Simulated assay, not measured.
Amino acid sequence: MRYGFHVSISGKLGLEGAAQEAERLGLSAIQIFAKSPRSWKLRPTKPGELEGFRARRENLGGLPTVIHASYLINLGAEGELWERSVFSLADDLAKAQALGAEYVVVHPGSAHPEQARKGALRARELAKLGKKGPQLLLENTAGGKGLLGNTLEALRDLIKDTPLGVCFDTCHAFAAGYPLHQAPQKVLDDLEKTLGLERVPVVHLNDSKGAFESHVDQHAGLLLGQIGLGLRGFITDPRLSHKIAIMETPRSTGEDAHNLRVLREWLEIKTPE
């Protein structure tokens, strides 16, 4: 399994700095934002930034890379919000292609129930943006407030007959009512049966501050939330051994050390010197 954190591209080194952080922490995959996730403003790349990142990525054995799209994107939107969503997502896909990143993850957004079907059709429209290059992955949501993609069946309908895939977030799934704390293998069975694991190349491995079926999207460090050891039973299942696991956990030097130690113990990976 390849694993890592969501790392920052801020600072003087930008994208290359993200690859440097991966090397320093001994990560085998990373996730980044290509721009601010809470703004429509695009982020131009600096001279040599793309080349520097790609060179470091190659030196690290390829370093699978995921770009997380803006939180503002809404596949169930209308009018100007829809147009902005398409423009922003197209930018993320173009950046991913330039960087050699394999995947772009996007939250499906929200809609009134009568618009949910339109959201599904819109997802199919967007699928063509990722036909040549990175694969576009829809992320499951914690549910509530009209959020699309809060069940496996809803995700199945969104990606049906498209090249779209799914990024499965454990915190979101738990908050939506999937019992990862009690029956992690059953959740994985449901994921395999409903979507097919070949459609799920990336897992967001996060514990949950919110309670089971609370629809509260608050990530916690491994073993520091309500899911607890259920995450070990889930992520160590052999069916996920070739997936990419990205931790979107709270970050500090101490928190990083804790989460890496726990995950490496679960995966029986020796901590790099």
Score class of each variant (00 low, 15 high):
E114I: 13
E114Y: 07
E114N: 12
Q115V: 14
A116V: 13
R117P: 08
K118C: 10
G119D: 08
A120E: 08
L121K: 12
R122A: 14
R124H: 09
R124N: 07
K128D: 12
L129G: 12
L129T: 08
L129Y: 07
L129D: 08
G130W: 04
K131S: 13
K131L: 15
K132R: 14
K132S: 15
P134L: 12
Q135S: 12
L136I: 12
L136G: 06
L136C: 08
L137N: 04
L138S: 08
E139T: 05
E139D: 06
N140I: 12
G143Y: 00
G144W: 01
K145Q: 11
K145P: 02
G146I: 03
G149K: 00
N150E: 12
N150P: 15
R156D: 11
L158S: 06
L158E: 00
I159G: 03
K160W: 14
D161Q: 14
D161E: 15
T162A: 09
T162E: 00
P163E: 02
G165H: 04
G165Q: 04
F168R: 01
F168I: 05
D169G: 10
T170K: 07
C171K: 01
H172K: 09
A173T: 03
F174C: 13
A175C: 13
G177T: 07
Y178F: 15
L180N: 01
L180I: 09
L180V: 08
H181R: 15
A183E: 09
P184I: 11
Q185N: 09
K186F: 13
K186M: 14
K186R: 13
K186G: 06
V187N: 06
V187E: 01
D189R: 13
L191W: 00
E192A: 15
E192K: 14
K193I: 09
T194W: 00
L195E: 01
L197T: 03
L197A: 11
E198S: 15
V200H: 03
V202Y: 01
V203C: 08
L205R: 05
N206W: 02
N206L: 10
N206Y: 03
D207V: 12
G210S: 06
G210F: 01
F212T: 10
F212W: 09
E213I: 02
S214G: 08
S214Y: 03
S214Q: 04
H215S: 14
H215T: 11
V216N: 04
D217H: 11
H219D: 10
H219I: 07
A220C: 10
G221Q: 01
L223E: 01
G225F: 09
Q226M: 11
Q226V: 04
